[in-house]
């Protein structure tokens, strides 16, 4: 476990950078985590992040693809190099455990 300071807030994160207490999350924190992953967040990103936070349990790429917000190809384009993991990290939720 480690501590990180995002947008002036110190939060506890796991060794691979996922926030432990998702209730401490806010949009400013999201922007700073995203910056570490070289992603500039747009409204589209935030729409996906909102969906992810609301559907944390049993989250899969397929569910995001069926959300009506973004299709799977678009999801990969928004969060290159591991969309489910990266979007979960930015959304301040646990590391996803899904294989699909």
């Amino acid at each position: 476990m480690a501590q990180k300071t995002y947008a002036g807030v110190t939060v506890e994160v796991t060794d691979d950078g996922y926030m432990i207490d998702s209730s401490k999350w806010n949009e400013e924190i999201a922007k700073e985590i995203a910056k570490e992953e070289n992603i500039e967040l747009t409204d589209k990103h935030f729409a996906v992040i909102k969906f992810i936070r609301q559907n944390e349990s049993g989250l899969t790429i397929r569910k995001v693809g069926n959300s009506g917000i973004v299709d799977i190809k678009g999801f990969y384009a928004l969060f290159p190099g591991g969309p489910l993991k990266m979007s979960s990290k930015i959304a301040g939720i646990k590391k996803p455990t899904s294989c699909v």
Binding site: G58, I72, K73, V100
Partner: peptide, 18 residues
């Protein structure tokens, strides 16, 4: 039930990811 898609949709997912 586990959100594992049918073959055609699975291939969609894989190719959408590159």
């Amino acid at each position: 039930q586990l959100d594992i898609p049918p073959v055609d949709e699975f291939l969609d997912m894989i190719t959408a990811g590159g």
